[in-house]
């Protein structure tokens, strides 16, 4: 991570990504990977974000149904509102909004915490033991954020669909079972694949980018907020790019 000239290049990022992935793959027998760091990350990123995710998911699910029904009923196609719920919420919004929440809560926290650890020479301390900071601090966080993203996105989907059904009661009393039958009829293999792949990729991106920015702090505590801002901006940009790529690949490769 040290660069005598202090400037970071794209090569530094890919080298960091390579080291992280290499350590992440060798999880068996790697005594530097900490289950405690992993569990704390899942607790903070996943469990503690549940109330906020519930609130957003309920709102999004309801609003999509409300807007979709208003639009489609003009053409006598109000029953297609489930298709909008699957296409908009399950395929796109759930992973994206969950990722934005995770960036805001955990990406910033990871970047700030690691940046402060560099400033207080805690990374040097680990290295003086012969411990790999990548294995101990980064890999555990990567697995934690990926697991939390997967759980949160699934949870978002459930709450959003429930929210959609609740809001649908405002304009037509659709039976709970009928609503979900229609909903599952609209679900395709591609939606299931996307619901699994996107959160995992987004989780990897958030954890790696935030960790990289945090570890890129040199000596001064004033760098920490600057690096945190970079972590947020770069994570969002990379997630949108990743979203495009995954959606395109799913569209091309997975039968609908």
């Amino acid at each position: 991570m040290r660069n005598p000239h202090g400037k970071k290049s794209l090569w530094d990022f890919f080298s960091f990504l390579g080291a992280t992935l290499s350590d992440a793959i060798q999880i068996r027998g790697n005594r530097h990977i900490s289950p405690m760091v992993l569990m704390r990350q899942i607790l903070f990123t996943g469990y503690e974000a549940l109330p906020l995710i519930s609130f957003i998911a309920l709102g999004i699910g309801g609003l999509v149904i409300l807007q979709g029904y208003t639009l489609l009923s003009n053409f006598g196609q109000g029953n297609l509102v489930h298709m909008i719920l699957v296409t908009v919420v399950i395929n796109e919004l759930s992973a994206m909004i969950t990722a934005l929440v995770v960036i805001a809560r955990s990406g910033t926290a990871i970047s700030t915490e690691l940046g402060n650890m560099v400033v207080h020479r805690e990374i040097d301390l680990l290295r003086s033991f012969g411990m790999s900071p990548i294995s101990y601090l980064i890999v555990s966080r990567v697995y934690g954020v990926m697991a939390a993203m997967l759980i949160l996105t699934a949870y978002f989907n459930i709450i959003a669909v429930l929210g959609g059904w609740l809001f649908s009661q405002l304009f037509s009393a659709i039976e709970f079972r009928a609503f979900f039958n229609d909903f599952f009829n609209q679900m395709r293999l591609s939606s299931i694949v996307v619901t699994i792949v996107k959160p995992l990729v987004f989780g990897l991106v958030i954890a790696v980018v935030s960790s990289y920015e945090g570890m890129s702090v040199k000596r001064s505590s004033t760098e920490v907020p600057q690096r945190t801002i970079k972590a947020v901006v770069n994570s969002i940009v990379l997630i949108v790019i990743a979203d495009f790529i995954i959606t395109w690949l799913t569209w091309v490769l997975v039968p609908r």
Partner: peptide, 21 residues
């Protein structure tokens, strides 16, 4: 150092008492 743990070969005492916070 070879296959030995680093802590068995070198023990580093930092000027400040650095700990993981």
């Amino acid at each position: 150092i070879g296959d030995q743990p680093v802590v068995s070969v070198f023990g580093y005492v930092f000027d400040e008492g650095i700990m993981l916070s």
